[in-house]
Write a protein that binds this DNA or RNA. Structure first.
Length: 435
RNA sequence: GGAGAGGUGGCAGAGUGGUCGAAUGCGCCGGACUCGAAAUCCGGUAACAGGGUCUCCCUGUUCGAGGGUUCGAAUCCCUCCCUCUCCGCCA
């Protein structure tokens, strides 16, 4: 959510910055609503003040045993107008809230202006894509004999679900454990276990609601006939980790808060029909190790660079070539002020594909959540929140299989991962180490 | 699922229709005392929103959430949510 003061004082400036990310701000609608709000709110508060003052006098008169009927008449005459004004104000404020909740964040000044992914800027590359002296297979073919089973996934749950067994299932688990251990022991994050099902209020805090309900899975408690509040499956643990500070005023010395969790993520992938239909690049359910930092506003851009480094460290340890992309204004997510994507090399596709996305949301989420800290002057101030994948486990599995494949269909396990694989060096169909 | 208790400021905890945004204690901030510290004493200390003559003043809202009664609600009524205790069931 944007700061309403900024819209009041610099509406055209806000409109220009939103336009750079392809969002057209209806300035006339805002100006009209704001003018109406100001008038109605002033009038309402005037009437409330009058009522409060007279009511107080009634109390005093009664206490002295005096007759208060003249005062009662005065206040009665306010009644209808006050009630009407309060109702009108509530409607205007709800409209205003709705308007604000649907505005995306402002891009940071350092973000390149552009319309689409084509305008993203490559910041750096690491590693050299390997040359293969045999026909490269993609992860679907490699995984077929190693336990990657899309048919069973589809039978159980439909398209975009994967079933894993044996060596691949173990590799998947090993990757998640490895990532969590690096985040906690080397990067200073606190490991968390969080709910996978959350309330609408929680999703409003991080910005998935009200605008993106179509991207979520909703859940219902058994034994209830449409009663009660809808619950949603988390699309990322950014949601649960960030909402930890919702409605909190954290002490200055508690900052920065650095949290990580390994959770499944559930996404309906509405609007991505026909995209990445082969393999496990785009699934309704995938695992991710998430990094969340909740920091002092002065430190958030420093933290952003640091978090990109944390994600990069994992890719390096796994010996996976990647590049770092700075997203342009038109390609950033709703709540982000600045985002870096990490793209891993996928030899079968002959291209780099997103495996991590790290964003600074500045106060956008904090304002929705009322997540604050007490500054050095003792005043409350909004925090800055950041989140990033460290990493998407499914896509990392794909990258390991494809980049480290061998001609005989086995896969070399990167050294960093071997302690998590019982010391084995190679992933093979028979489960045996062939070297 | 059954029975009961309860949700109040950073925390603990009073308050059952009228100067209550809220006693008291703790914590925190400032001051006094002290060479300094501790102890003690004095004073201050909620959030959010709006307005202004904008380092300050004024107004409004907020006592789990929403609705109702009333001139007036933390306090009375209704609905919902959550927490705790006991019993039952359960991984």
């Amino acid at each position: 959510m944007l700061d309403i003061h900024l819209l009041r004082t610099d509406l055209s400036g806000v409109a220009a910055r939103l336009a750079s990310r392809g969002y057209t701000l209806d300035t006339d609608a805002f100006a009209a609503l704001e003018a109406e709000r100001k008038e109605v709110q002033t009038r309402t508060q005037e009437l409330q003040a009058k009522r409060n003052a007279i009511s107080k006098q009634i109390g005093l008169a009664r206490a002295k045993g005096e007759d208060a009927s003249a005062l009662m008449e005065q206040v009665a005459s306010l009644g209808d107008e006050l009630k009407a004004a309060e109702e009108k104000l509530a409607v205007i404020q709800a409209k205003m809230q709705d308007f604000l909740l649907n505005l995306p964040n402002l891009p940071h000044a350092s973000v390149p202006v552009g319309d689409s992914a084509a305008d993203n800027v490559e910041v750096r590359r690491w590693g050299t894509p390997r040359r293969f002296d045999f026909a490269v297979r993609d992860h679907v073919d490699i995984g077929a004999v190693l336990g990657l089973d899309f048919d069973t996934g589809a039978k159980l749950s439909g398209a975009r679900f994967t079933f894993m067994r044996g060596p691949v299932a173990r590799l998947h688990r090993a990757l998640a454990q490895f990532m969590l251990d690096v985040q906690t022991t080397e990067h200073g994050y606190t490991e968390c276990y969080t709910p996978y099902v959350v309330t609408a209020e929680t999703l409003r805090g991080t910005g998935q609601l009200p605008k993106f309900e179509a991207d979520l899975f909703a859940a219902k408690k058994g034994g209830q006939e449409g009663e009660g509040e809808a619950l949603y499956l988390i699309p990322t643990s950014e949601v649960t980790l960030t909402n930890v500070v919702r409605d909190e005023i954290v002490p200055l010395e508690a900052l920065p808060i650095k949290l990580t969790a390994h959770t499944p993520c559930f996404r309906s992938e509405a609007g991505s029909y026909g995209k990445d239909t082969r393999g496990m690049i785009r699934q309704h359910q995938f695992d991710k190790v998430e990094m969340v930092q909740i920091v002092h506003p002065d430190r958030s851009y420093e933290a952003l660079e640091e978090m990109v480094g944390h994600a990069e460290a994992l890719l390096r340890k796994l010996e996976l070539p990647y590049r770092v992309m700075l997203l342009c204004t038109g390609d950033m997510g709703f709540g982000a002020a600045k985002t870096y994507d990490l793209e891993v090399w996928l030899p079968a596709q002959g291209t780099y594909r997103e495996i991590s996305s790290v964003s600074n949301c500045e106060a956008f989420q904090a304002r929705r959540m009322q997540a604050r800290f007490r500054n050095a002057q003792g005043k409350t101030e909004l925090l800055h929140t950041l989140n990033g994948s460290g990493l998407a486990v499914g896509r990392t599995l794909v990258a390991v299989l494809e980049n480290h494949q061998r001609e005989d269909g086995s896969v070399i396990i990167p050294e960093a991962l071997r302690p998590y694989m019982g010391g084995e060096k190679v992933l093979a169909a028979d489960g045996k180490t062939s070297e």
